[in-house]
Amino acid sequence: MQVEALQTDDLSMLSKESVSFLRGRRIILHRIGQEEKPFLGWNSIGENRLDIVEFSDTNNRQPVASIDSSVIQVAETDEGYVFAAKGCVAYNFLDKKRTLMFGPAIYYWAESTSSHIEERLGEKIPSIFFRDPQLAMRALRILLERNLTFRAVKQLRHGTVLIDGSLKYSSIEPQNADLRSIIMLSKENYGSLAGIAKKTKIKELQRLEGLLLTRNFPSFIDVTEIMKIAGVEIAGKSFLAKLSGNAPALRVDISHDEGEDFFSKLISSDAIVNGYPETLRAAHLLSIFSPADEAAVKARLGKIDGLSILPGFNIRHMLLGTLEVKRR
């Protein structure tokens, strides 16, 4: 019996057309697990369409706190998932470094424990968050980060609080430490709140990055309108900014400050290393799970009374064999 070719004319044609559409385009090749940007940006929008504002260091120094967290899945039961979470608040009190580290903490996330979780967090959690571990980890991360941010904002009067990522409202917000309350508290404390994202998925913004990359000074572009057009709801204003002369552009969401005022204050108050605030870098490095952290969490699980660890097997190895072919 012969193997017949599939009737894939349309798919074959589309592929050929795609190749022809790419003619004359500039591309950047992706590598496995790495986020890459073109060195000089896409540079596809004329400079005259948007204002580029340069800013500089001032003597207005304030305390800075940066928050980051990470959540990993460490186990599962027949009805749910076990996650471990770590969070970090890195402070720079006018050059005096302090760090608050939370965790590693263990969370059992299952529908049978949902009411307990909701009661403890004061938030109704949609059931999908208990069925999809990716969504659950995201929710857990937001809950942890909001709590840490709330604490930092409460502690710092006239201070700047930075979080890793965008300043977007989430479908899950803890009742007493939701983003709205945090922004309100920040305003009451005469503070500043911003989210700094290393990469944006919005193509319009990617194309704008080139405008900043050709500049040799710290500068920013207000992209709030572009974000609105792209349908992304941000709590405050959005900017593309480079925080030092020779640095990549970052997307910065600022809750209530004016752009120039905020950026000048930030680069005066925190060290900017390779274009990134040092406290945020510290919070990131200290909150990621190392293999030792993960092993410690698993060891802690093993100490729980009555918990039995079942022997497991790798289904991919069993079904596909152990031949290792690197995949994405």
């Binding site: 890195a90 608050l100 580290m101 903490a105």
Partner: peptide, 9 residues
């Protein structure tokens, strides 16, 4: 850096 730990478990 002065590190304060909050490690519930």
């Amino acid at each position: 850096s002065e590190i304060v730990r909050e490690d519930p478990l």
